[in-house]
Design a protein around this nucleic acid. Structure first.
Lengths: 218, 218
DNA sequence: GAGTGTGAATGTATTCACAGCA
DNA sequence: TGCTGTGAATACATTCACACTC
Protein backbone atom coordinates (compact mmCIF):
# COMPACT_ATOMS: atom_id res chain seq x y z
CA UNK A 1 0.00 0.00 0.00
CA UNK A 2 0.89 3.68 -0.33
CA UNK A 3 3.10 3.18 -3.37
CA UNK A 4 5.38 5.43 -5.34
CA UNK A 5 4.29 7.04 -8.56
CA UNK A 6 0.73 6.46 -9.76
CA UNK A 7 0.57 6.11 -13.55
CA UNK A 8 -1.95 8.24 -15.36
CA UNK A 9 -3.56 5.10 -16.77
CA UNK A 10 -4.38 4.01 -13.23
CA UNK A 11 -6.21 7.22 -12.34
CA UNK A 12 -8.15 6.98 -15.57
CA UNK A 13 -9.28 3.48 -14.77
CA UNK A 14 -10.17 4.43 -11.20
CA UNK A 15 -12.53 7.00 -12.63
CA UNK A 16 -14.03 4.26 -14.77
CA UNK A 17 -14.47 1.92 -11.80
CA UNK A 18 -16.19 4.73 -9.99
CA UNK A 19 -18.74 5.06 -12.75
CA UNK A 20 -19.71 1.41 -12.42
CA UNK A 21 -19.73 1.55 -8.63
CA UNK A 22 -22.01 4.57 -8.70
CA UNK A 23 -24.56 2.59 -10.69
CA UNK A 24 -24.68 -0.16 -8.05
CA UNK A 25 -27.42 0.68 -5.61
CA UNK A 26 -28.40 -2.76 -4.36
CA UNK A 27 -25.21 -4.78 -4.21
CA UNK A 28 -23.47 -4.76 -0.84
CA UNK A 29 -20.23 -6.36 -2.02
CA UNK A 30 -18.35 -6.70 -5.29
CA UNK A 31 -15.32 -8.82 -6.13
CA UNK A 32 -12.53 -7.68 -8.40
CA UNK A 33 -13.45 -10.54 -10.72
CA UNK A 34 -17.08 -9.52 -11.04
CA UNK A 35 -16.24 -5.87 -11.57
CA UNK A 36 -13.60 -6.88 -14.09
CA UNK A 37 -16.09 -8.91 -16.11
CA UNK A 38 -18.55 -6.04 -16.01
CA UNK A 39 -16.05 -3.54 -17.39
CA UNK A 40 -14.11 -5.88 -19.61
CA UNK A 41 -10.76 -5.92 -17.85
CA UNK A 42 -8.68 -8.41 -15.90
CA UNK A 43 -9.29 -8.80 -12.19
CA UNK A 44 -5.60 -8.39 -11.38
CA UNK A 45 -5.54 -5.03 -13.09
CA UNK A 46 -8.28 -3.78 -10.80
CA UNK A 47 -6.64 -5.10 -7.64
CA UNK A 48 -3.31 -3.66 -8.67
CA UNK A 49 -4.83 -0.27 -9.43
CA UNK A 50 -6.49 -0.19 -6.03
CA UNK A 51 -3.30 -1.29 -4.29
CA UNK A 52 -1.72 2.06 -5.14
CA UNK A 53 -4.03 3.69 -2.64
CA UNK A 54 -4.46 1.11 0.09
CA UNK A 55 -6.11 -2.16 1.00
CA UNK A 56 -9.85 -1.95 0.78
CA UNK A 57 -10.93 -5.55 0.33
CA UNK A 58 -11.57 -8.53 2.56
CA UNK A 59 -10.30 -11.90 1.28
CA UNK A 60 -13.41 -14.05 1.13
CA UNK A 61 -15.99 -11.36 0.34
CA UNK A 62 -14.44 -8.83 -2.00
CA UNK A 63 -15.00 -5.08 -1.61
CA UNK A 64 -17.82 -3.20 0.05
CA UNK A 65 -19.37 -1.19 -2.76
CA UNK A 66 -20.10 1.92 -0.72
CA UNK A 67 -16.72 2.00 0.96
CA UNK A 68 -14.83 1.38 -2.27
CA UNK A 69 -16.74 4.16 -3.96
CA UNK A 70 -15.79 6.55 -1.17
CA UNK A 71 -12.18 5.46 -1.12
CA UNK A 72 -11.72 5.88 -4.86
CA UNK A 73 -13.46 9.26 -4.73
CA UNK A 74 -11.07 10.31 -2.00
CA UNK A 75 -8.03 8.98 -3.84
CA UNK A 76 -8.97 10.97 -6.95
CA UNK A 77 -9.79 14.12 -4.98
CA UNK A 78 -13.47 13.82 -5.86
CA UNK A 79 -14.61 13.93 -2.25
CA UNK A 80 -15.17 17.66 -2.55
CA UNK A 81 -16.73 20.21 -4.89
CA UNK A 82 -14.77 21.65 -7.82
CA UNK A 83 -15.80 24.97 -9.30
CA UNK A 84 -15.40 25.31 -13.04
CA UNK A 85 -15.40 28.18 -15.55
CA UNK A 86 -16.49 27.74 -19.14
CA UNK A 87 -14.80 29.91 -21.77
CA UNK A 88 -16.85 29.98 -24.96
CA UNK A 89 -20.61 29.55 -24.62
CA UNK A 90 -21.29 28.60 -28.21
CA UNK A 91 -22.87 25.37 -29.40
CA UNK A 92 -20.26 23.11 -27.86
CA UNK A 93 -20.06 25.15 -24.66
CA UNK A 94 -23.83 25.09 -24.26
CA UNK A 95 -23.83 21.34 -24.83
CA UNK A 96 -21.23 20.98 -22.08
CA UNK A 97 -23.40 23.02 -19.71
CA UNK A 98 -26.07 20.38 -20.13
CA UNK A 99 -23.72 17.43 -19.85
CA UNK A 100 -24.95 15.33 -16.92
CA UNK A 101 -21.64 13.69 -16.04
CA UNK A 102 -20.00 16.81 -14.64
CA UNK A 103 -22.42 17.55 -11.82
CA UNK A 104 -22.50 13.89 -10.86
CA UNK A 105 -18.77 13.96 -10.22
CA UNK A 106 -18.89 17.18 -8.22
CA UNK A 107 -17.89 19.63 -10.96
CA UNK A 108 -19.99 22.78 -10.92
CA UNK A 109 -19.82 25.23 -13.79
CA UNK A 110 -20.20 28.53 -11.95
CA UNK A 111 -19.51 31.00 -14.75
CA UNK A 112 -19.45 31.23 -18.53
CA UNK A 113 -17.40 33.69 -20.58
CA UNK A 114 -18.08 34.82 -24.11
CA UNK A 115 -17.26 37.82 -26.28
CA UNK A 116 -20.71 37.78 -27.89
CA UNK A 117 -22.50 40.78 -26.40
CA UNK A 118 -25.93 39.22 -26.87
CA UNK A 119 -25.03 36.53 -24.36
CA UNK A 120 -23.32 38.63 -21.71
CA UNK A 121 -25.40 39.31 -18.62
CA UNK A 122 -27.78 36.47 -19.38
CA UNK A 123 -27.98 33.01 -17.89
CA UNK A 124 -27.60 30.00 -20.15
CA UNK A 125 -28.73 26.72 -18.62
CA UNK A 126 -28.69 28.51 -15.30
CA UNK A 127 -25.11 29.70 -15.62
CA UNK A 128 -24.35 33.44 -15.79
CA UNK A 129 -22.33 34.59 -18.80
CA UNK A 130 -19.69 37.32 -18.44
CA UNK A 131 -17.30 39.19 -20.68
CA UNK A 132 -13.76 37.75 -20.61
CA UNK A 133 -12.38 40.94 -19.06
CA UNK A 134 -14.24 40.03 -15.88
CA UNK A 135 -12.51 36.68 -15.68
CA UNK A 136 -9.84 37.45 -13.05
CA UNK A 137 -12.44 38.94 -10.72
CA UNK A 138 -15.07 36.22 -11.14
CA UNK A 139 -12.59 33.36 -10.89
CA UNK A 140 -11.14 34.76 -7.69
CA UNK A 141 -14.50 35.52 -6.13
CA UNK A 142 -16.10 32.21 -7.05
CA UNK A 143 -13.03 30.17 -6.07
CA UNK A 144 -12.87 28.53 -9.50
CA UNK A 145 -10.00 26.09 -9.96
CA UNK A 146 -10.66 24.52 -13.36
CA UNK A 147 -11.25 26.17 -16.74
CA UNK A 148 -12.91 24.60 -19.76
CA UNK A 149 -11.97 26.02 -23.16
CA UNK A 150 -14.68 25.63 -25.83
CA UNK A 151 -13.79 28.41 -28.25
CA UNK A 152 -12.67 28.30 -31.92
CA UNK A 153 -9.06 27.36 -32.55
CA UNK A 154 -7.85 30.94 -33.06
CA UNK A 155 -9.10 32.06 -29.66
CA UNK A 156 -7.84 29.04 -27.73
CA UNK A 157 -4.42 30.33 -26.70
CA UNK A 158 -5.63 33.73 -25.51
CA UNK A 159 -8.41 32.01 -23.56
CA UNK A 160 -5.80 29.83 -21.89
CA UNK A 161 -3.59 32.82 -21.11
CA UNK A 162 -6.49 34.69 -19.58
CA UNK A 163 -7.46 31.69 -17.45
CA UNK A 164 -3.89 31.34 -16.27
CA UNK A 165 -3.44 34.96 -15.22
CA UNK A 166 -6.78 34.63 -13.46
CA UNK A 167 -5.18 31.97 -11.28
CA UNK A 168 -6.74 28.80 -12.65
CA UNK A 169 -5.08 25.50 -11.67
CA UNK A 170 -6.12 23.24 -14.54
CA UNK A 171 -7.38 23.58 -18.11
CA UNK A 172 -9.67 21.23 -19.97
CA UNK A 173 -9.27 22.10 -23.64
CA UNK A 174 -12.01 21.20 -26.13
CA UNK A 175 -10.76 23.44 -28.93
CA UNK A 176 -9.25 21.69 -31.96
CA UNK A 177 -5.76 23.00 -31.30
CA UNK A 178 -3.00 22.66 -28.75
CA UNK A 179 -2.35 25.38 -26.22
CA UNK A 180 0.88 26.16 -24.38
CA UNK A 181 0.67 26.50 -20.61
CA UNK A 182 3.25 27.00 -17.86
CA UNK A 183 4.36 23.89 -16.03
CA UNK A 184 2.32 24.55 -12.91
CA UNK A 185 -0.97 24.43 -14.82
CA UNK A 186 -2.48 21.01 -15.52
CA UNK A 187 -3.68 20.58 -19.07
CA UNK A 188 -6.03 18.02 -20.63
CA UNK A 189 -6.92 18.08 -24.28
CA UNK A 190 -10.15 16.58 -25.60
CA UNK A 191 -9.27 16.34 -29.22
CA UNK A 192 -12.17 14.88 -31.23
CA UNK A 193 -10.63 15.22 -34.65
CA UNK A 194 -7.38 13.57 -33.63
CA UNK A 195 -9.27 10.72 -32.06
CA UNK A 196 -11.51 10.21 -35.04
CA UNK A 197 -8.53 10.28 -37.38
CA UNK A 198 -7.09 7.02 -36.10
CA UNK A 199 -10.26 5.04 -36.83
CA UNK A 200 -9.68 4.73 -40.59
CA UNK A 201 -6.27 3.19 -39.95
CA UNK A 202 -7.93 0.28 -38.18
CA UNK A 203 -10.78 -0.04 -40.67
CA UNK A 204 -8.30 -0.25 -43.53
CA UNK A 205 -5.60 -2.37 -41.90
CA UNK A 206 -7.55 -4.69 -39.63
CA UNK A 207 -10.86 -5.05 -41.47
CA UNK A 208 -11.89 -8.05 -39.36
CA UNK A 209 -10.21 -7.30 -36.08
CA UNK A 210 -11.31 -5.20 -33.20
CA UNK A 211 -9.67 -1.85 -32.79
CA UNK A 212 -7.50 -1.48 -29.75
CA UNK A 213 -9.97 -0.31 -27.18
CA UNK A 214 -8.25 2.07 -24.87
CA UNK A 215 -9.73 2.61 -21.46
CA UNK A 216 -9.67 6.34 -21.17
CA UNK A 217 -11.97 8.41 -23.17
CA UNK A 218 -10.64 6.53 -26.18
CA UNK B 1 10.60 0.25 -43.05
CA UNK B 2 7.32 -1.67 -43.24
CA UNK B 3 7.47 -2.83 -39.62
CA UNK B 4 5.36 -5.21 -37.57
CA UNK B 5 2.68 -3.99 -35.25
CA UNK B 6 1.99 -0.26 -35.09
CA UNK B 7 1.12 0.86 -31.55
CA UNK B 8 -2.02 2.90 -31.12
CA UNK B 9 0.05 5.71 -29.59
CA UNK B 10 1.93 6.00 -32.88
CA UNK B 11 -1.21 6.48 -34.96
CA UNK B 12 -2.45 9.06 -32.49
CA UNK B 13 0.75 11.05 -32.81
CA UNK B 14 0.73 10.76 -36.60
CA UNK B 15 -2.66 12.44 -36.58
CA UNK B 16 -1.14 15.17 -34.45
CA UNK B 17 1.80 15.65 -36.83
CA UNK B 18 -0.69 15.92 -39.63
CA UNK B 19 -2.45 18.80 -37.93
CA UNK B 20 0.77 20.79 -37.75
CA UNK B 21 1.77 19.89 -41.28
CA UNK B 22 -1.60 21.06 -42.58
CA UNK B 23 -0.99 24.48 -41.08
CA UNK B 24 2.30 24.88 -42.96
CA UNK B 25 1.57 26.59 -46.23
CA UNK B 26 4.86 28.29 -46.94
CA UNK B 27 7.57 25.96 -45.71
CA UNK B 28 8.97 23.59 -48.29
CA UNK B 29 10.90 21.39 -45.85
CA UNK B 30 10.69 20.53 -42.18
CA UNK B 31 13.16 18.60 -40.01
CA UNK B 32 12.11 16.20 -37.29
CA UNK B 33 13.84 18.49 -34.79
CA UNK B 34 11.91 21.57 -35.83
CA UNK B 35 8.57 19.75 -35.88
CA UNK B 36 9.40 18.22 -32.51
CA UNK B 37 10.07 21.61 -30.96
CA UNK B 38 6.85 22.94 -32.43
CA UNK B 39 4.76 20.15 -30.95
CA UNK B 40 6.74 19.62 -27.78
CA UNK B 41 8.12 16.15 -28.39
CA UNK B 42 11.52 14.60 -29.03
CA UNK B 43 12.82 14.43 -32.58
CA UNK B 44 13.62 10.72 -32.28
CA UNK B 45 10.01 9.97 -31.41
CA UNK B 46 8.86 11.57 -34.64
CA UNK B 47 11.42 9.77 -36.77
CA UNK B 48 10.62 6.47 -35.10
CA UNK B 49 6.89 6.95 -35.61
CA UNK B 50 7.44 7.69 -39.29
CA UNK B 51 9.76 4.71 -39.68
CA UNK B 52 6.80 2.38 -39.13
CA UNK B 53 5.47 3.40 -42.51
CA UNK B 54 8.56 4.01 -44.61
CA UNK B 55 11.46 6.36 -45.24
CA UNK B 56 10.27 9.79 -46.21
CA UNK B 57 13.19 12.02 -45.34
CA UNK B 58 16.40 13.09 -46.98
CA UNK B 59 19.45 13.32 -44.69
CA UNK B 60 20.57 16.89 -45.08
CA UNK B 61 17.20 18.55 -45.69
CA UNK B 62 14.60 16.84 -43.57
CA UNK B 63 11.14 16.08 -44.91
CA UNK B 64 9.21 17.68 -47.72
CA UNK B 65 6.11 19.11 -46.03
CA UNK B 66 3.69 18.32 -48.84
CA UNK B 67 4.97 14.81 -49.37
CA UNK B 68 5.05 13.99 -45.66
CA UNK B 69 1.51 15.24 -45.29
CA UNK B 70 0.36 12.97 -48.09
CA UNK B 71 2.28 9.98 -46.80
CA UNK B 72 0.88 10.28 -43.28
CA UNK B 73 -2.61 10.77 -44.68
CA UNK B 74 -2.19 7.63 -46.71
CA UNK B 75 -0.76 5.65 -43.78
CA UNK B 76 -3.75 6.59 -41.63
CA UNK B 77 -6.26 5.90 -44.39
CA UNK B 78 -7.15 9.59 -44.64
CA UNK B 79 -6.45 9.79 -48.37
CA UNK B 80 -10.12 9.21 -49.09
CA UNK B 81 -13.54 10.38 -47.95
CA UNK B 82 -15.27 8.78 -44.96
CA UNK B 83 -19.01 9.01 -44.64
CA UNK B 84 -20.36 9.37 -41.13
CA UNK B 85 -23.76 9.06 -39.45
CA UNK B 86 -24.70 11.01 -36.36
CA UNK B 87 -27.08 9.37 -33.89
CA UNK B 88 -28.61 11.96 -31.58
CA UNK B 89 -29.03 15.48 -32.95
CA UNK B 90 -29.39 17.22 -29.59
CA UNK B 91 -27.14 19.95 -28.26
CA UNK B 92 -23.97 17.91 -28.39
CA UNK B 93 -24.84 16.37 -31.74
CA UNK B 94 -25.57 19.77 -33.25
CA UNK B 95 -22.29 21.08 -31.89
CA UNK B 96 -20.49 18.19 -33.56
CA UNK B 97 -22.20 19.01 -36.88
CA UNK B 98 -20.52 22.40 -36.70
CA UNK B 99 -17.16 21.10 -35.58
CA UNK B 100 -14.65 22.21 -38.22
CA UNK B 101 -12.07 19.48 -37.67
CA UNK B 102 -14.12 16.67 -39.16
CA UNK B 103 -14.55 18.02 -42.66
CA UNK B 104 -10.90 19.04 -42.78
CA UNK B 105 -9.87 15.42 -42.26
CA UNK B 106 -12.27 14.07 -44.85
CA UNK B 107 -15.11 13.00 -42.57
CA UNK B 108 -18.51 13.93 -43.94
CA UNK B 109 -21.58 13.65 -41.76
CA UNK B 110 -24.16 12.56 -44.32
CA UNK B 111 -27.11 11.77 -42.06
CA UNK B 112 -28.45 12.49 -38.60
CA UNK B 113 -30.84 10.30 -36.63
CA UNK B 114 -33.12 11.36 -33.82
CA UNK B 115 -36.33 10.17 -32.22
CA UNK B 116 -37.64 13.72 -31.78
CA UNK B 117 -40.37 14.11 -34.37
CA UNK B 118 -39.90 17.86 -34.64
CA UNK B 119 -36.43 17.30 -36.10
CA UNK B 120 -37.17 14.47 -38.49
CA UNK B 121 -37.37 15.46 -42.13
CA UNK B 122 -35.55 18.74 -41.52
CA UNK B 123 -31.98 19.68 -42.19
CA UNK B 124 -29.77 20.78 -39.31
CA UNK B 125 -26.55 22.50 -40.34
CA UNK B 126 -27.19 21.14 -43.82
CA UNK B 127 -27.54 17.54 -42.69
CA UNK B 128 -30.86 15.70 -43.13
CA UNK B 129 -32.33 14.15 -39.99
CA UNK B 130 -34.10 10.78 -40.13
CA UNK B 131 -35.93 8.52 -37.74
CA UNK B 132 -33.72 5.68 -36.41
CA UNK B 133 -35.87 3.04 -38.13
CA UNK B 134 -34.52 4.33 -41.43
CA UNK B 135 -30.94 3.73 -40.35
CA UNK B 136 -30.21 0.44 -42.14
CA UNK B 137 -31.52 1.83 -45.43
CA UNK B 138 -29.76 5.20 -45.23
CA UNK B 139 -26.46 3.76 -44.06
CA UNK B 140 -26.42 1.26 -46.89
CA UNK B 141 -27.47 3.77 -49.54
CA UNK B 142 -25.08 6.50 -48.43
CA UNK B 143 -22.17 4.09 -47.95
CA UNK B 144 -21.67 5.23 -44.36
CA UNK B 145 -18.86 3.46 -42.51
CA UNK B 146 -18.59 5.33 -39.21
CA UNK B 147 -21.26 6.14 -36.63
CA UNK B 148 -21.14 8.84 -33.99
CA UNK B 149 -23.25 8.29 -30.87
CA UNK B 150 -24.35 11.51 -29.15
CA UNK B 151 -27.42 10.37 -27.26
CA UNK B 152 -28.15 10.21 -23.52
CA UNK B 153 -26.61 7.31 -21.60
CA UNK B 154 -29.79 5.19 -21.56
CA UNK B 155 -30.08 5.23 -25.35
CA UNK B 156 -26.40 4.56 -26.07
CA UNK B 157 -26.45 0.77 -26.26
CA UNK B 158 -29.52 0.56 -28.50
CA UNK B 159 -28.02 3.21 -30.77
CA UNK B 160 -24.86 1.12 -31.03
CA UNK B 161 -26.85 -2.04 -31.75
CA UNK B 162 -28.82 -0.30 -34.46
CA UNK B 163 -25.66 1.06 -36.07
CA UNK B 164 -24.12 -2.39 -36.00
CA UNK B 165 -27.03 -4.19 -37.64
CA UNK B 166 -26.99 -1.40 -40.21
CA UNK B 167 -23.49 -2.54 -41.14
CA UNK B 168 -21.36 0.22 -39.63
CA UNK B 169 -17.63 -0.50 -39.30
CA UNK B 170 -16.65 1.82 -36.44
CA UNK B 171 -18.35 3.70 -33.61
CA UNK B 172 -17.31 6.96 -32.06
CA UNK B 173 -19.11 7.14 -28.73
CA UNK B 174 -19.70 10.53 -27.06
CA UNK B 175 -22.31 9.30 -24.58
CA UNK B 176 -21.26 9.14 -20.93
CA UNK B 177 -21.39 5.37 -20.78
CA UNK B 178 -19.65 2.36 -22.25
CA UNK B 179 -21.25 0.32 -24.99
CA UNK B 180 -20.63 -3.31 -25.88
CA UNK B 181 -19.85 -4.09 -29.51
CA UNK B 182 -18.86 -7.24 -31.39
CA UNK B 183 -15.18 -7.69 -32.04
CA UNK B 184 -15.34 -6.73 -35.71
CA UNK B 185 -16.58 -3.23 -34.90
CA UNK B 186 -14.01 -0.62 -33.94
CA UNK B 187 -14.97 1.45 -30.92
CA UNK B 188 -13.65 4.76 -29.63
CA UNK B 189 -15.02 6.41 -26.52
CA UNK B 190 -14.82 10.15 -25.98
CA UNK B 191 -15.49 10.22 -22.29
CA UNK B 192 -15.49 13.80 -21.00
CA UNK B 193 -16.45 13.03 -17.42
CA UNK B 194 -13.83 10.35 -17.01
CA UNK B 195 -11.18 12.63 -18.40
CA UNK B 196 -12.17 15.52 -16.20
CA UNK B 197 -12.22 13.28 -13.15
CA UNK B 198 -8.48 12.70 -13.16
CA UNK B 199 -7.66 16.41 -12.98
CA UNK B 200 -8.39 16.82 -9.26
CA UNK B 201 -5.94 14.02 -8.50
CA UNK B 202 -3.13 16.07 -9.96
CA UNK B 203 -4.28 19.35 -8.43
CA UNK B 204 -4.35 17.76 -4.99
CA UNK B 205 -1.25 15.58 -5.21
CA UNK B 206 1.09 17.61 -7.38
CA UNK B 207 0.07 21.18 -6.62
CA UNK B 208 3.22 22.60 -8.18
CA UNK B 209 3.89 20.08 -10.91
CA UNK B 210 2.53 19.82 -14.38
CA UNK B 211 -0.01 17.15 -15.03
CA UNK B 212 1.14 14.38 -17.30
CA UNK B 213 0.20 15.67 -20.71
CA UNK B 214 -0.90 12.82 -22.85
CA UNK B 215 -0.72 13.20 -26.58
CA UNK B 216 -4.05 11.89 -27.68
CA UNK B 217 -7.13 13.80 -27.05
CA UNK B 218 -5.95 13.87 -23.47
C1' DG C 1 28.01 18.98 -40.56
C1' DA C 2 23.30 18.39 -40.16
C1' DG C 3 20.09 15.74 -40.90
C1' DT C 4 17.69 10.69 -41.16
C1' DG C 5 16.97 5.82 -39.73
C1' DT C 6 17.48 2.02 -36.47
C1' DG C 7 19.39 -1.68 -33.20
C1' DA C 8 20.35 -1.71 -28.21
C1' DA C 9 19.32 -0.09 -23.62
C1' DT C 10 16.35 1.81 -20.59
C1' DG C 11 12.05 2.77 -18.50
C1' DT C 12 7.14 1.90 -17.90
C1' DA C 13 2.88 -0.89 -17.73
C1' DT C 14 0.65 -5.23 -17.68
C1' DT C 15 0.28 -9.97 -16.66
C1' DC C 16 1.71 -14.10 -14.12
C1' DA C 17 2.25 -16.86 -10.12
C1' DC C 18 1.65 -17.44 -5.68
C1' DA C 19 1.58 -16.23 -0.64
C1' DG C 20 -1.84 -15.03 2.87
C1' DC C 21 -6.21 -14.70 4.98
C1' DA C 22 -11.10 -15.87 6.50
C1' DT D 1 -11.91 -22.80 -1.15
C1' DG D 2 -12.42 -18.10 -2.88
C1' DC D 3 -10.86 -14.04 -2.73
C1' DT D 4 -7.24 -10.18 -1.93
C1' DG D 5 -2.63 -8.27 -2.37
C1' DT D 6 2.04 -8.21 -4.28
C1' DG D 7 6.94 -9.49 -5.84
C1' DA D 8 8.75 -11.43 -10.18
C1' DA D 9 8.43 -11.97 -15.08
C1' DT D 10 6.95 -10.49 -19.33
C1' DA D 11 5.52 -7.36 -22.81
C1' DC D 12 5.43 -2.86 -24.45
C1' DA D 13 6.98 2.04 -25.39
C1' DT D 14 10.46 5.46 -25.25
C1' DT D 15 14.98 7.13 -25.30
C1' DC D 16 19.90 6.61 -26.28
C1' DA D 17 23.78 6.00 -29.22
C1' DC D 18 25.53 5.71 -33.44
C1' DA D 19 25.91 4.30 -38.39
C1' DC D 20 24.81 6.32 -42.61
C1' DT D 21 23.79 9.73 -46.35
C1' DC D 22 23.92 14.15 -48.88
Amino acid sequence: MAKEKVPESVTRRLSLYLRYLRKMKEEENISSGKLARLIGLSDVRIRKDLSYFGQFGTPRKGYKVKELREQISKALGLDRVWNVALVGVGKLGTALLGYPGFKKSGFYIKAGFDVKLSKIGKKIAGVPVYHPYQMPKIIREQKIQIGIIAVPAKAAQESADLLIISGIKAIFNFSPTRVVVPSYVKLKNVDFASKLEVIPYYIVNYPQLKCFQWLDGS
